[in-house]
Design a protein around this nucleic acid. Structure first.
Length: 413
RNA sequence: GCUGAGGUGCCGGAGUUUGGUCAAUCGGAACUGUCUGUAGAACAGUUACUCAUUUUGAGUUUCGGGGGUUCAAAUCCCUCCCUCAGCA
């Protein structure tokens, strides 16, 4: 049922086919984020129309609401959300960061660090600086970690929930995604070497418990990815890659990789050296257009990212090179600003996405955004995901024809 | 023409009774920035001018126009203009 076959290589970049019980995924693939069993503001039929192949939903959010049994009784996520294609579920590991140290450190998973940020003294100096400016501390954490378990404090109602790797597996089994992730701890870019190393070994222990539990569940309709952690430290990344490769994981996830752009490329480089090449590789949570090229060229097969759908709801539309997207403008334009109020051209003049080909103008979407009208979010979300799919299709074709550099040149300049 | 109610920053709208802590509460809007396994249809900052600046800052011109009282006026007095409602 599960298979991963590479059909072409160009260097480390590769294109292939990932087979799951709910369909095949052409790789490299972009994975829209559907945290709460919906890609916000659009329907499964919209996803089909723009040729999205695989979604990622979030175990933590769905466990809290509507609850695992509701989804299980509906026939799992596929039945519940009426998306018949492949799905992956995150394990809750990211919430360890986003609800825990992320709040404590006052950062998301990215932070503008120095190029040589593997130097702990400089990272700690940055932490001190952020503390002195009052950018750190302040808010209460929602997630607490120990070797044995995670304790979440629900962001919805404040109730406490204990999670173990075993529990994450049980929940993910009931949710019924095609691909599940082992429970890990995603570390903050502001964690030091000592903590990151300790955390890595804890993640490995959790991942071992995850796979033992997962195999015991004998759920043939699912497969599991392990996750490489290790922060910005080469030896830890190498060790972690070896760990995931040598265990019975179907695929490899790379987590916590976007410390900053420079370090991310280093991390991808270190990890790619340790990969056997047989397992599909998913880069967790990263999907900037430049990041995707960086990942593909190191052998990454799939990317999920909340950014295209999130910025869509703010009025930022993605621009392919056909519509003036460049590295300089970060392939985007904000359609909600006043200068577009009278612009009757489509969002992307040369786009061809459902929103643009139906003729919805910048002026109209500007008005919808300005008025907070829901249709606006739908139109921009469809547009942005379409641009991502256009990018991925070009990348796949580029690799197949040994001209990836031309695709890169077209998008990156 | 009479009577009454008003004229405040991009807009709406506080503040005027008890002059100072008012470059002016609050809301909207705009602009800028942030955003990458979604506590996110979010958040932060800016929105009179000049200088200084890591911060606290200093100065100038502002609350319909003009004049006055006062150490000090969006707030008090005089006068003019304008808007709205009712009555002629």
């Amino acid at each position: 049922m599960f298979q991963f076959n590479v059909s072409h290589f160009q260097g480390k970049a590769r294109t292939g086919r990932l087979s799951t019980p709910h369909g095949e995924i052409l790789t490299p693939a972009f994975v829209p984020v559907g945290t709460q069993a919906t890609v916000k503001s659009i329907r499964p039929r919209d996803l089909l129309e723009i040729k999205s192949q695989l979604l990622i939903c979030n175990t933590y959010h769905l466990y809290l609401r509507p609850g695992v049994d509701v989804i299980s009784n509906a026939g799992g996520l596929h039945g519940f959300m009426n998306w018949k294609g492949p799905i992956m579920t995150d394990s809750g590991g990211f919430q360890v960061l986003s609800l825990g140290a992320g709040i404590e450190h006052g950062v998301g998973k990215t932070v503008k660090l120095f190029a040589d940020s593997t130097d702990d003294s400089r990272v700690e100096a940055l932490v001190d600086m952020k503390k002195s400016r009052g950018e750190i501390i302040t808010k209460e954490k929602f997630c607490f970690v120990s070797d044995e378990r995670i304790i979440f404090k629900s962001h919805l109602d404040g109730t406490f929930h204990e999670w173990t790797p075993e529990k994450s597996m049980e929940i993910q089994s009931k949710l019924g995604a095609d691909i599940v992730f082992a429970l890990d701890e995603c570390t903050s870019p502001l964690h030091n070497r000592e903590y990151t190393e300790k955390s890595l070994h804890r993640s490995h222990a959790w991942e071992e418990r995850s796979i033992v539990k997962f195999r015991k569940l004998h759920n043939k309709a699912q497969e599991i990815y392990g996750i490489v952690q290790g922060g910005p430290y080469e030896d830890l990344r190498t060790e972690s890659t070896k760990f995931v490769e040598s265990h019975d994981f179907f695929g490899v996830g790379i987590g916590g990789a976007l410390v900053n752009k420079t370090v991310m490329e280093d991390i991808l480089d270190w990890v790619s050296k340790g990969l056997s090449g047989k397992k599909p590789v998913h880069l967790l949570g990263i999907g900037g257009i430049d990041d995707i090229f960086a990942g593909v060229e190191k052998g990454v097969d799939s990317f999920d990212c909340a950014d295209p759908t999130r910025i869509a709801r703010r009025g930022d539309i993605l621009l392919s090179p056909d519509d003036g997207g460049t590295r300089k403008n970060r392939w985007r334009a904000n359609i909600a600003v006043a200068e577009f109020r009278d612009d009757l051209t489509p969002l992307g003049i040369n786009c061809g996405c459902p929103s643009c080909s139906e003729g919805f103008s910048k002026s109209y979407v500007n008005h919808l955004m300005w008025s907070r009208e829901l249709t606006g979010y739908t139109l921009t979300t469809i547009h942005n995901l379409f641009v991502m799919e256009k990018l991925m299709a070009e990348i796949r074709e580029g690799i197949a024809e040994n001209k990836l550099e031309k695709v890169r040149e077209r998008w990156m300049g």
